[in-house]
Write a protein that binds this DNA or RNA. Sequence first.
RNA 1: GCCGAGGUGGCGAAAUGGUAGACGCGCAGGAUUUAGGAUCCUGUGGAGUAAUCCUUGCAGGUUCAAGUCCUGUCCUCGGCACCA
Length: 768
Amino acid sequence: MNNDYIMTKFDYNHKNIEHKWQDIWEKKNSQKADDFNDKPKFYALIEFPYPSGEGLHLGHAFTNIILDILVRKKRLSGFNVLYPTGWDAFGLPTENFAIKTGIQPAIATKKNTDRFKAQMKKLALAYNWDREINTTDPNYFKWTQWIFLKFYEKGLAYKAEAAVGWCPSCKIILANEEIIDSKCERCGTESELRSQKQWILKITAYADRLADELDLVDYPTSVKQSQRNWIGRNEGTIVKFENARREYETKEIAIFTTRIDTIFGVSFVILAPEHPLAKELGQTNKEVADYLVKVSRKSERERSESVKEKTGVNTQVDAVNPTSGEKVPIWISDFVLSSYGTGAIMGVPAHDERDREFANKFSLPIREVIKDDKLINSGKYDGLNYKEAQEKIIKDLGNKARKETIYHLRDWIFSRQHYWGEPIPIVNCPMCGLVPIPEDRLPLKLPQIEKYQPTKTGESPLANIIDWVNTTCPKCNGPAKRETDTMPNWAGSSWYYLRYCDPNNNNALADLKKLRYWMPVDLYLGGAEHTTLHLLYSRFWHKFLNDIGVVPGKEPYKSRRQHGMILAEDGSKMSKSKGNVINPDDMIEKYGCDTLRTYLAFMGPYDQTMPWSIKGIEGARRFMNKIWNIFNDESKFNDTTSKELLYLLKKTIIKVGGDIDKLKHNTAVASLMIFLNEWEKKEVILSKEDAKKFLIILSPFAPYISEELWHGFSKKESSVHDQQWPIATADVQEENTTIAIMINGKLRSTIILNKSVSLNKQREIERI
RNA sequence: GCCGAGGUGGCGAAAUGGUAGACGCGCAGGAUUUAGGAUCCUGUGGAGUAAUCCUUGCAGGUUCAAGUCCUGUCCUCGGCACCA
């Protein structure tokens, strides 16, 4: 069966044309961004891909093309454009591939990036290839390590016990991204929590700035909102309840609340099972001890399932309400989280749903203390508005209460127990403790090894490489051991946009002058999956690097846009297992790159989820054929352009340019189609000069066919891609506008007004 | 539950408060062709022979005029979620 798109004598041969120009452009290597230039700069950034073994997929093609169209238009409009790409190449799939096959990750990475690059070139993505970067390149990760050392130097990287996922079957530590639905990604075993010493970055030190400085940038509301939710800033009060029994070590229980005004409604206090007092009580009270054991055996999943049914144990010990002096029982329950606030809450069942559930289950008293925003049953505070009452109660409590802001954001666990990541450049010396590797000895490279499996003790595979682990202390020169943890995937991508500004610098992560010229990123296009973590992490690193004076500006990305997703024809997600994946290579082969690009631009707004349509791409192919045919029809050209067509051309130039700038590629393509449809009509002709203008505004979408046709009119050396975006001023004299006249909701008549009529005059006419 | 995005033809969609459905797909009829495909022409929101009427999730409101602005409500999708 012939799988080729059936070509007739009218069709152009996309294969010949596209191969030809791909070779010529490759040799010309023309896309260079000049550091420092009088032209206005434009920095367009696309999330750099992870070079997987499967090759570039349709989603990559879609998003890269969307940005490529804008970039080509910006270049034609006289901008000095920085449009780079690279490889976010550290990561688990490559490591897992190495475990399975024994092929070195670096070799697999090279193979994959070569393939991606070839595919990108076929798509006519006009990157500054001379700025290509790779996070696994020692010349790159030298600076990732350098940044880590700066964090360490400033006290923002520290080592501490942290709960991490653990697979009891594979006997390895699981990164968050390896836990799918609370199960181990490899074997499907239920993951457990385990405490282990980890490197941690103190992102919480930047929590306020990460939230507040969102006001400085142009991100979609949803992105800003989800960043703020993730940071989860909450202003409230920490209040101390005394332990009524003096024999315990924990004399006071600190409690975080946002509603200190409800303190007269407290009928119990609840501790998280991990709370120090809970542990203390467990030593003497068997019932408490049993509960703590029961809870600790629960898996993460079981614990989150307990939402449905609250559990708890009465400790038989009381706490003293510091405002009323009332004694209330202390309970322990796992619905109170040790990781949020102080790990202890005051139970106000009348005004908190969860507390009410708990009170109902264990028959605890419920007392209402707020009615219509005013306090009741609250002693001397009765009648006060709840906000006033908060201030007053805090003041009256003196040193037993203070205002406090807490965050949902946790510090960032930065260690991974894997091979294929940046080694953490720290040495453990028995004499000096943790010692950073001096900057001039960076990069600390990965040793070449044969076995990539993690060790059964939960350490990284690097721990098995004795030659590498054993080293000398940079401080005392005594024997010491290297840190064997590596950095997470997020590390290299947290600063890559900076390296593009100066990719080969050996003395700094990038030259400050170059950074001052190019930064900030003018437009960052990426996917919804990176709305919170990647964006937050890279903003954090940027702010830190700005604080230590190595990069300019508070924020890395001036504006961020999120692209949508392309679904399979039936509206389901494309997936290998369903066998409904559309491969961009096949589409290029069959219909041509220009057709694919134009269709992807035309199918709908870039930020939406849209189903793929094979009929749709055939429609785009018809559009290409029509262009080809009309340009090869001598009778459609003459010395002067028909008047009505000239006016439409001006309108189209303005519309296409404006729409591309707004990333409204779909309506830009529509207006190109409208122009072509008009031109196809009998009796209208175009001059060759005006036809060239059409090719220029077509070229961002269809770079090959426009270049080929351009050469039908121009000298050999010239390229449609090196031209200037045509300037068109709307000719107001020619344009009339029709205004509908409506009376009582019915259309009564229409009037045609010349647009040059002033607004006042229009109002006069309207009055008549 | 909280936050965000969105509901317009058979489908993807378009529309600075100004004649809703541009453009594309699909469909129907015609031309061409031995035939099919491709191509070209015409038509295509719904009802009605027609004049005309109805139509942007639903119910109200503002306006000469509402898909668009306001109030309420329902539904779909995405994220977070025992966050005190």
